[in-house]
Design a protein around this nucleic acid. Structure first.
Length: 556
RNA sequence: UAAUCUGUGGUGCAAUGGCAGCACACCGGACUUUGACUCCGGAGAUGAUGGUUCGAAUCCAUCCAGGUUAACCA
């Protein structure tokens, strides 16, 4: 059973209703059925969380099934990537299944349909077949081959199967009705001949089943009770049931297809074609570019699987058109990272500060808390010295009283260190401040317990000691598109909405403890945001990706 | 204009004939050695009309708006 108090979404409601009528809990079974023709993205994550989430709450098995019925588009590489991504999200499938494992059974059933007069071989071109399809408002017309004898159909289908028949010469069609209101019921194609090697079955098959013929029967073979898919498959349901009725024994429990609305994310595109275009145009580097909405891209960006799962679960499931704000995803990422990410100090845009009354040869290693949200995270030491970097935007010669940062004549706290006061600054020939001279309150060291250390000063800055800092390449990301629905514009190509400033690469100065950071490690650069060590990062050349900024309520 | 699905604050979801609620976003305040986190508060919605009912977001009717469906893709 699902949680008692939580209200049920319409999918859970369907299951609860079925449990009352014709299913026992042990008969419940689900599946996640990707086609291995590309990388999983945030939209798939919703479907994964729905199906595997249902599996968890009803203690039911969930299969990972590859819908590999079209060898022209599918590759082993994608199978591997999909498995990696589902695993990374934290889900375990009961069985790893392939539609291609059912090709023989599907073929046998197709022969049965032919024998029963429910399917026929059509020898027209695809254009001719399309021509006869009719339109939603007008009926189609019968194929001249519709009434071929069972014997002839059997013989031709066999020739298709062996490859004896010319490729593309014939198709197998279900014999339903060319005047059905539902276009999909107008004698849909069940098999096409393709003399193309399949990534799993090799050259064994010269014919491949279409989605509608393969999917429902695969559900049945695996004993899937509920087959959830997105709304655009709604018209397929009638055909799904028609095939089930023809193939399944009358008294067996038939799998049910039910549809939910796909989740759209603002400022994002997910269609494979469009994502590929982004790569081809050099707008992003690869499928796992941290700006991509792919699972692998989000992983490289530093998003956690928990954040993605929380996101998917928190937006719920419905049947209406929707666009979820990207800011909601970002909230989920921050919420999770806030609990987990160790705090460090890194200065993105360095400005030199000279502490004039701090001895030149002195250095101190100061205690710094790793995570205020988690005492168990412990602490580390950070070096302090006479010359430090602070963020350029944290200093102004003059500013109003809402500026809680460093300005001439005023004090700020250096995080984990001392209170400093800006006395003067020097500028280059263009008038840019290149150094700030400060004095420090010698008794104000953080944690020292002195009266001065407990003084309240408005404003705390992060910093790094210049002589100890290590340089790091940091990639700052912004949303990839400037508008909410980049692919919904009828007049403009989605590429016109690309944000030209979605990536900025800078060299930051970070505290020395980061020397040992490993690819995949996530940190909060205090006051700056969350950052993740990139897959290409090495000890000699640190590379960070900005995951997401901190919430910033300062209207500076 | 054939069939079918869907209309609840800016966004996403709840309320299953009984006080329209939650989250994000937004605005204000408290706290703060992160302008973060946390806490407190605020504003903001049932597409329209009619009907049934003591009572309608929910049931009925009509209308309006939007989506989906015409690949040898999935």
């Amino acid at each position: 059973m699902a949680e008692d108090l939580k209200s049920l979404n319409f999918i859970e409601q369907i299951i609860e209703d079925d449990l009352k009528l014709d299913y026992t809990q042990s008969q419940l079974q689900f599946r996640f059925p990707p086609e291995p023709n590309g990388y999983l993205h945030i939209g798939h994550a919703s479907a994964i969380c729905l199906n595997f989430g249902l599996g968890l709450s009803y203690k039911a098995p969930v299969n990972l099934r590859f819908d590999d019925t079209n060898p022209t588009k599918e590759e082993q590489e994608f199978v591997d990537a999909i498995k990696r991504d589902v695993e990374w999200l934290g889900f375990n499938w009961a069985n790893e299944c392939y539609a291609s494992d059912y090709f023989q059974q599907l073929y046998d059933w197709a022969v049965m349909l032919i024998k029963n007069g429910d399917a026929y071989v059509d020898s027209q071109t695809s254009a001719e077949i399309a021509e006869q399809k009719g339109t939603p408002t007008s009926p189609g017309t019968n194929s001249p081959f519709r009434d071929r004898s069972v014997e002839e159909n059997l013989q031709l289908f066999e020739a298709m199967k062996t490859g004896e028949a010319e490729e593309g010469k014939h198709v197998l069609r279900a014999k339903i009705s060319m005047s059905a209101k539902n276009m999909l019921m107008r004698d849909p194609v069940m098999y096409r001949s393709m003399h193309k090697a399949h990534h799993r079955t090799g050259d064994h098959w010269k014919i491949y089943p279409m989605y509608d013929w393969a999917h429902g029967q695969s559900d049945y073979i695996e004993r899937v009770s509920h087959s959830f898919c997105t709304l655009e498959f709604q018209p397929h349901r009638e055909l799904y049931n028609w095939f089930a009725k023809k193939v399944l024994a009358p008294d067996t429990l038939k799998p049910k297809q039910r549809e939910f609305a796909r989740r759209n994310l603002s400022h994002t595109v997910v269609s494979k074609r469009k994502l590929l275009k982004l790569i081809e145009h050099g707008i992003v580097e690869s499928w796992d570019d941290p700006r991509m909405p792919t699972i692998s891209g989000m992983r490289r960006r530093g998003y956690t699987p928990e954040a993605i799962v929380n996101f998917a679960n928190s937006i719920g499931i419905g049947k209406r058109e929707n666009t979820v704000n990207l800011s909601h995803l970002e909230f989920c990422v921050r919420e999770d990272l806030n609990k987990k990410a160790p705090r460090v100090m890194g200065v993105l845009d360095p400005l030199k500060v000279l502490i004039t009354n701090y001895p030149e040869d002195k250095e101190e290693w100061l205690e710094a808390e790793n995570n205020p949200e988690n005492e168990a995270a412990g602490s580390r030491k950070v070096p302090f010295s006479r010359e430090i970097y602070i963020e350029k935007e944290d200093f102004r010669e003059e500013a109003n009283r809402k500026f809680f940062r460093l300005k001439l004549g005023k004090e700020v706290r250096l995080k984990n260190a001392y209170i400093i006061k800006a006395e003067s600054c020097t500028k280059d020939e263009n008038g840019n401040v290149i150094e700030v001279q400060c004095t420090y309150d010698t008794d104000s060291r953080s944690g020292s317990g002195t009266e001065a250390s407990l003084r309240k000063v408005k404003g705390t800055l992060h910093w790094v000691s210049i002589q100890h800092a290590i340089p790091a390449k940091v990639r700052l990301y912004d949303r990839l598109f400037t508008v909410e629905n980049p692919d919904q514009d009828k007049d403009k190509d989605f590429l016109e909405h690309v944000n030209p400033n979605s990536l900025e690469v800078i060299t930051a100065q970070v505290e020395p403890s980061l020397k040992d950071a490993n690819p995949g490690d996530r940190f909060q650069f205090q006051r700056m945001g969350y950052f993740c060590v990139d897959t290409t990062s090495t000890t000699e050349h640190l590379v960070f990706n900005k995951t997401v900024g901190l919430r910033d309520s300062w209207k500076g």
